[in-house]
Deep mutational scan, measured.
Amino acid sequence: MASQGTKRSYEQMETDGERQNATEIRASVGKMIDGIGRFYIQMCTELKLSDYEGRLIQNSLTIERMVLSAFDERRNKYLEEHPSAGKDPKKTGGPIYKRVDRKWMRELVLYDKEEIRRIWRQANNGDDATAGLTHMMIWHSNLNDTTYQRTRALVRTGMDPRMCSLMQGSTLPRRSGAAGAAVKGVGTMVMELIRMIKRGINDRNFWRGENGRKTRSAYERMCNILKGKFQTAAQRAMMDQVRESRNPGNAEIEDLIFLARSALILRGSVAHKSCLPACVYGPAVASGYDFEKEGYSLVGIDPFKLLQNSQVYSLIRPNENPAHKSQLVWMACNSAAFEDLRVLSFIRGTKVSPRGKLSTRGVQIASNENMDAMESSTLELRSRYWAIRTRSGGNTNQQRASAGQISVQPAFSVQRNLPFDKPTIMAAFTGNTEGRTSDMRAEIIRMMEGAKPEEMSFQGRGVFELSDERAANPIVPSFDMSNEGSYFFGDNAEEYDN
């Protein structure tokens, strides 16, 4: 993207840094990872977990959730003011799984939030270390993106479920800051804005008074975040219109849905970061690795190297396929839920299948599930090659597409044709070009129609051997075009429920 120079890199967003050079960025990201790792080690000690239990991804998720809940100030305040039966607002906890007599047992633990905050700050040299908290939120978000298709949420806001490739980060909490905003897809931002506008339509006082002023500035800020994701002048001009509207209503909703559809071809720039579970960072720190000293990046080879040398386990339900569970977590670790499966298959070195073909449910185990038949197995999170994460949407291309997802959002900077089903997408653009945004709409449609099938995206960008740390010898991959490109292809993934 041309304006790259004016933006802070995501590592800076990730670490609240002012302008830093590459070495400083690597050190501050490393410091953040160190903090998460030290916190995780301490929690495993508190909970008396064995090494194996500490490497269980379900335990990692519970521990991450506990610290996120302990620092969720708004919710904590709300819980104190609106006490609900049987919930102690000062405590947080969740299921911890232990191996007892050759069987997995679930144990519900409860801790004072104050105590968890103390352990977290102690692991982070006394700081609140917001960057580390956001990092864990993005890992949870990436896992949700890989596990669930947001059909219901899309339909509720009037969008087409086939636009799911635009929904990265749709389950990120509001408090995820600049680093969170960077990884949100165009569809996620559109959905947040539509929800806001709908509230304004239904509630006369939404934009009024002292609160209304705050609401208005939040609305304009979200519009600017979305505008910054678009790469064409016409899309940005249309966002200006939406932002400046005196009284946002149905016309703005129409414009936003139009823009979301246009992003299936004229893709937005959305950041991709490899955020790993805390149970990967903990053992690495415990083994003596100093992330701050060595430096770390979320968008280069580092996460690949770390996963190459990590042992992570997962509980497996009786009829689940461990290899499929591994694929789910591998995609989440690489922030690749909406990437082209052919690119992923090449990088991973084994075939990556669409969601609907995987015999696996989510990673988390519900409290009512029976533990008797639970097994555990090693997650295979290694890769054959590594590639640089991208934040450009890439230019655009036609490809055989599917009944489910009709476009992709690249996660890796790797040369390819970008699949999208042009006739299906263009069919949504018939007729409606009147109104105050008509010239911009016409211009956007013209650009979409001009998108050429034979153009290559990320020209000359390749993948790298894991021994090639400096990215000196790019390998331009070859793809098996007979395979499906979309992950949520004609899909039956479970729906995400809060």
Rank of each mutant, 00 (worst) to 15 (best):
V155N: 15
K7Y: 11
K452H: 00
G393R: 08
M66T: 01
I41M: 00
I33H: 10
M481R: 15
G177F: 06
R174H: 07
M137I: 04
I138V: 13
S486M: 10
G460Q: 09
R470N: 11
M426G: 00
T134N: 04
Y313N: 08
G435L: 11
S60C: 00
H272Q: 13
N370W: 06
V29Q: 07
R65H: 07
F479Q: 01
A22Y: 02
W330K: 10
M66R: 02
E465C: 10
N250P: 12
T45N: 02
T215S: 03
L344K: 09
R216S: 02
T424G: 00
S50F: 15
M66L: 02
N319M: 07
M191C: 15
Y78M: 08
R470T: 05
D16P: 02
S170D: 14
H272L: 13
A2Q: 10
K90V: 00
D145W: 10
L166Q: 12
V408K: 13
F458K: 07
E80L: 00
R99G: 13
D302L: 04
A233N: 13
E494T: 11
Q168V: 13
Y111H: 15
S326A: 07
C223T: 15
V183A: 14
L108I: 02
E495R: 07
R175E: 10
A366Y: 10
D34H: 01
P354L: 08
R121K: 15
L379F: 09
L381Q: 05
K273R: 02
S482T: 04
D255K: 11
C275K: 10
F71D: 13
R436I: 02
E11N: 10
E114V: 12
I194Q: 04
V280M: 05
G94D: 10
M32R: 01
K31S: 05
R106G: 12
L466Q: 00
Q405H: 04
E434R: 00
G126Q: 08
F39T: 04
K452Q: 12
L328T: 02
E320N: 10
S486E: 10
G394T: 06
M137N: 12
V190Q: 07
R106I: 07
I365H: 09
T396H: 05
F412N: 12
M374Y: 05
I96S: 06
R221D: 12
T146W: 12
Y289W: 09
Q58S: 05
E115P: 08
D51P: 00
M440T: 05
N417I: 03
P83M: 06
G393V: 12
R355F: 10
P477G: 11
E18Y: 00
A493M: 10
Q231C: 05
M32H: 10
G126H: 07
N247R: 03
R55P: 03
R317L: 02
R261V: 12
L381K: 07
P474E: 00
N483M: 08
P477W: 11
S467E: 02
I265Q: 08
L61D: 12
D203A: 02
G435W: 04
A234L: 09
M448H: 12
A271Y: 09
Y148I: 06
V100P: 15
K31T: 02
P354C: 03
A387G: 03
E192M: 10
S9I: 01
N142K: 09
K77N: 04
L266R: 04
A251P: 12
E254V: 14
V408Y: 09
A332W: 11
T6S: 14
G187R: 06
I225D: 06
Y111A: 15
G54E: 14
G177R: 12
E443F: 10
N21S: 02
W386C: 05
K184V: 08
G17S: 12
D145K: 06
C275V: 07
A178C: 06
Q399V: 14
V352S: 06
A442M: 02
N492K: 15
S377A: 15
D203T: 07
F420Q: 04
F39Q: 03
R382P: 05
L379D: 11
